[in-house]
Design a protein around this nucleic acid. Structure first.
Lengths: 191, 191, 191, 191
DNA sequence: GATGAATGAGTCTTCATTCAT
DNA sequence: TATGAATGAAGACTCATTCAT
């Protein structure tokens, strides 16, 4: 009878928003962005088309939000106390977490990789990506240099490429890819 | 105005077909599959929309053909006398060619990578892909085993992942990626 | 926290209703009817969307109400003791008020003129409009006939047309239109 | 069997384009711009929705084209050898044609007036309007000054306002408006 | 073979309106 | 009374595909 409190509205909004995000992520990853219509997302989420626009400005911004949140979470997990130099221990942990995340949330990575290569990548995506990747590359370079590697820059780039390559190949061929063994090998060869 | 022979007609058909394929590849790579309309392909190729349907059943089959032909060419270049065992020399050559191709035709790889991850495409693609990749993985595994690597299977997969990862990263960040140095490092670490 | 009397409730209702009407009029005039959403009216009025439907049946009926009230006010201002015959003095006053209103509230007139021409609105509107205009035309006709005008009916219609035309042109080109001078001329030529 | 010649295509295009323009004008005038959907235009024109977009970029540009063509035609008919000064004869002719056009094509005028007042007038419209109206006002002013009118500027503006006012009123009340008589009166009072 | 007009299903998006609280 | 989430019908627009010539 009495109108809902602000808190109640907030909760409803947050929850519904999350439902939409989850549904959209699953579908985008599974079928690709273009092959996923707003109608389908609505149907899968059990809501009306219009409601999606109550929570997101456009299909595009829905994607942006998914990527942004996903990247933030990813980054947060992988954070290694920025400025300090890298230790072997930290690097091993970084690799561990990366492989774990990949295994836990392949859908997100599938979406992630499919978009990172698209000719017109979303700007938010590229920004966030580079502001995180560049410092990491720099840390890695120092690390390898300290270990006596001649071409430490190349090794840093190669290391990052490996993480991406493993991601792509694991997604493309999840049944056969020996993720655990490969992880061990990466740790062995790159730390 | 003498009537053309059957052979001449054939030649004309083959050439026009090739024009369409080339134009479509360039546009798909440049703009993405969905952002490229049949109209645009026709305009760029200097022909009418309708004519494309004279040569290809659908937009989809046009893409399939492009991928199929591209993959064939790629495989052909990289072929290393199938059954025989792998030598260090051969592997180095394989790496060389892979990096060279990547550098020569990044647009082409961009299309490939962007599509390889798409679920829909994967299925079309996987057959051909795996019939080529699996034997290669097997060769690599033997090679590494012969070299005394404990986990030769993982190393074979890792090697393939590296090639993909380098492709993805090089495409995503062509200005900064130290392709030549990375290649040297790959040769050093994986042959 | 004493319970409000019925009168107080009534007052609150009337005031809120007026807020909605005022806000809607301002927005309709400023942006046009179709470009103004109920959401926007609610936001500008500082209330919720739903509440508007507590006071008005539909967007359409809200517009109708605005027009109806506006027209009533307009008529009231311009009223010249109905039945009696028209004098030069009264006609001058009528012109004065018309031009004054136009100057004071051009937005309001903009809405009026823009809607008066719309076929859909015309029908809603015509009844009220014509029951007011026809008598006025008749008074004017008598006035001009008494002054010896040959074609008094045409002159009456022309006079009304002038008021509309001045309204339209003044609204369309407010910076340049010499309203005051034109008024003098109208008085000179039509009284 | 053989493909159509360029001329044939041209004819088809021109004719179909005209059908769309005519249908759209009738509907826009009858129901208003916003109340007329592209679907309806297509249905009335006996073609598919999509085809309209083969001929016009958007609903907006369709309207623009209608107005642009209509104004051009209007202007052409009303043209009075620009630079020269105005004579009584020319002015009478101008009034004659204006009233005639109004009678012949009330639909266009209805659309015209309904749009000229809209808050957001189309730019093309305003441009054309002012480049035609300003010079005419200037000619009129000279004409009235030459005739000894004290306030020739106001009279010029008033004259233009009358034409608009007559247009609006005639459209709003076509059955009763004594167009012919009013025309005579305008000629009498303003030439 | 070649053309491009024509189709129509499908897409994203808007917004008046309803309704549970 | 007041709220704003939720609905769903409708709108503009796109584009792969067809077909008469």
């Amino acid at each position: 009878m009495s109108p809902r409190t602000s808190d109640q509205w907030d909760k409803i909004r947050r929850e519904k928003r999350q439902v939409i995000l989850d549904t959209a992520l699953a579908l985008f990853a599974q079928r690709g962005y273009h092959e996923t219509s707003i109608s389908l997302i609505a149907k899968e989420a059990g809501i009306s088309k219009g409601l999606i626009y109550n929570y997101f400005e456009s299909k595009d911004s829905l994607l942006n939000e998914i990527l942004s949140l996903g990247l933030d979470a990813l980054i947060k997990d992988l954070e290694m106390e920025g400025n300090e130099s890298l230790t072997k221990e930290k690097l091993v942990r970084y690799i561990d977490i990366t492989f774990l995340k990949l295994q836990e949330n392949p859908k997100f990575y599938q979406l992630f990789f499919s978009l990172i290569i698209q000719p017109r990548v979303l700007s938010i995506f590229q920004d966030k990506f580079f502001t995180q990747i560049i410092p990491l590359l720099s840390l890695l370079e120092k690390y390898y240099k300290a270990k006596g590697n001649k071409n430490s820059k190349a090794k840093a780039y190669l290391f990052m490429a490996i993480l991406d390559g493993v991601g792509v190949d694991f997604i493309a061929n999840r049944e056969n890819f020996p993720l655990e063994e490969v992880k061990k090998l990466v740790i062995e060869m790159f730390t």
